[in-house]
Design a binder for these strands. Structure first.
Lengths: 235, 235
DNA sequence: AAGTGGTCTAGACCACCCT
DNA sequence: GGGTGGTCTAGACCACTTA
């Protein structure tokens, strides 16, 4: 199987350090020629490396060697920028949209809302070292954060929620699945429809046990590694 | 983009219930003809649905509609069979190999072992309703479970460890990444090299804080949904 | 303007599964 | 033994990025 040999060859070059993180691979046509094969087979190999997290692509721009992933520990509260900075990365955040609206089905379920509830919804894209790695859709109960739209949403949200509305998340519930980028998210993250992704649904619960905010995070699968600890009481 | 239209068409049929879980899709050639396209494009669409978890494949046997995923809550101790049974599924477990050996690099790191430590290593494949969904490699400190090889390893391991050696896991550490099946694991799970997978590395820690066992789990990405809760102390 | 990645066509061969 | 999935070839066109 040729495509396995190609992935092995490229994987070895990455792991031996001959191909540094962030490097752009040669064009598909050149690689195909180098491996004496066609673009179809070559792209099969590249897709495999992508799903493995070793390389990633930017739509119509080419294939790049992945940086080491961001390690997220779900046992503690995490905030993209702080985590990135503490791991020596350069985080940036861009707000794509922000609106007041009626909660859709998925958000209504996640927040246990009554039907037709008002929420704020905003979208952000997070980058590491200049490359988009995660898209997040936030949905938050409107009555709990009046005038949210008049605030800057690029920064640390838990600090904003705390200082403006005394809203603290004391508990978080997570749900993690493997999925792919759809067309909108691919566009927002300079990625490609169908690229493998990790979806993290996070529900922030306040002191009184009420779910206040749900966040749907879509990560490039190469950009993240999840960690957590659980302590068990003996039977 | 044709392959998007194909995924949308098949996705809709699945979600509307016209294609029941477990059903085998028609052959690729028939599907390609039905969608007036070639096998290459059709397979692109199928791969996308696979990464999305809607369908899965068995090597050389075809494509099937996924069952609903098993929901694993990492905040509590979990055991494949019990979780599966509690969710109305039929779990089976097969032991592929079991040996005494010297720990390799990955296990040595995960268990913080001294160099050249003796461990037992065994592999299991777990199925749901007759279909393999997860491969697990267990590595456990040899001195802690003498004569492990003389025991049946198909069943509940935490019960076995507890009753035979008074070994209890009081804490677990997890690490989760997105990856693909390699050739060996694909063979063991009746899957295909390069199929998308979720890798969960679990380290079981005993009362005294020593890491006793590490488990490398490779899940079909369609077969699992992770959940967890975290409680945060206020600053 | 040239080159690139994204998409698609129309075939082919082989080993394997199923009947 | 027929059909299937896994793999591969050798092209093509287009919209977009990059220089």
């Amino acid at each position: 199987m040729q495509y396995i040999k190609i992935t092995d060859a490229i994987r070895e070059q990455i792991q031996s350090g001959q191909l540094a993180a962030g490097t752009k691979l040669p064009s598909e046509r050149k690689l195909a020629e180098a491996f004496k094969t066609t673009r179809v087979t070559l792209r099969e190999a590249l897709s495999l490396l992508e799903a493995d997290g070793l390389i990633f692509r930017e739509d119509r721009r080419g294939w790049f060697i992945s940086q080491r992933p961001l390690v997220i520990n779900l046992s503690k509260p995490y905030e993209f920028s702080s985590v990135a900075l503490s791991q020596g990365r350069k985080p940036t955040t861009e707000v794509l949209s922000c609106d007041s609206m009626m909660a859709n089905k998925e958000s209504t379920e996640a927040l246990s809302l009554p039907p037709f509830s008002d929420v704020f919804r905003f979208e952000r894209v997070h980058s590491l070292d200049g490359r988009p790695v995660m898209y997040a859709e936030h949905v938050i109960r409107a009555e709990r954060v009046p005038n949210l739209l008049q605030h800057a949403l690029e920064g640390n949200l838990s600090e904003l929620y705390q200082s403006e509305w005394q809203l603290n998340a004391t508990q978080a519930k997570y749900r993690i699945i493997s999925t792919t980028f759809d067309q909108d998210i691919a566009l927002a993250t300079r990625s490609t429809t169908g690229s493998p992704a990790i979806k993290i649904t996070k529900v922030n619960v306040d002191e009184s046990g009420v779910a206040q905010e749900v966040i749907f995070e879509y990560w490039r699968c190469s950009a993240i590694e999840l960690e957590m600890e659980a302590a068990f009481t003996l039977r």
